[in-house]
Amino acid sequence: MKGVLMKKIISIVLSICMILCALPIQAFAKNLSIEESLANIVGKDLVTPRLIEKAKNDIDNLESVGFESNRLNIEKVSKSGEITYKFRLTDEIESRITAIEDSQGSLVLNIYEGTKHNELVYLSDGGLLVDGNRVEISFEVINEKKEVAQNTECIAFANARYSQYSTSPFVSSSTYTDFIKSYKANKNAWGVETIVNLTATVVAAILSASISGISVGGSIAISIFAYTASAMINYVYIYGMEDAYWSYEFDKYESTESWSLERHYKYTGACYSRRNQDPNGAKFPHTFYEFNFFS
């Protein structure tokens, strides 16, 4: 009788111990997906802490420049430990990416899409290189709302807010009526002789890097520009390059449903196949939305 009781007690205690021991592991359950992904590719024994750390750092780096982590998957790991990621730009377009952060702080991405390959370098001075050519990223503000223009002497950026971007409005589309300002970039370099050689992911990344400067919430997600990028490449494929530069213009509107804690913006405008928004070239209209908030 005593033996049976002891067994029951031991059984209960062991069960409790197992549950308690499992608790801290559950806190890292989500991280295991990276470990599991790596384990599925290289085998569990070869998944080192260094490899896991590299994967996490790569994903963090990619997300910082607009590659959404929920569109990234680990695809393969080379013998030297280089990780290749699959990035789903759209349902039809996927690219393969490797990422290296050099000692100078630059982020070097090699992007493969079908037979195309481009090198994209995010420089530590904020610049961008495409296959070794520097992209001119600049914009000017025009037609600023009167009361905002009074404060042109200085801009202080708090930037302690967070932004989400989407091609769909976050609140009723009819509420984005309060004009804020217009932005123009008259001379952004293609970076190469023709963008036909560029992957859609790279063109979308260039657009994201160029246009992110007009928002306050960090990098605009690259997938926002997926269809514009594809349309631009297809246009050049058919008609050829019309200029050594492209340009863009965007008007910024705020929703009447904005308040200090949650701000809603609409950016509507177009990318142009020629500099200075030349109407003789091709125009690629584009609208996207920003939800800016404190979390």
Binding site: C154, A156, A158, N159, E254, R263, N292
Partner: peptide, 17 residues
């Protein structure tokens, strides 16, 4: 208080700072 903008980010004048 030196930042008080109706725009999306706080802005203010250097002279206020």
């Amino acid at each position: 208080k030196v930042l008080d903008s109706e725009e999306e980010i706080n802005s203010g004048n250097v002279s206020s700072i």
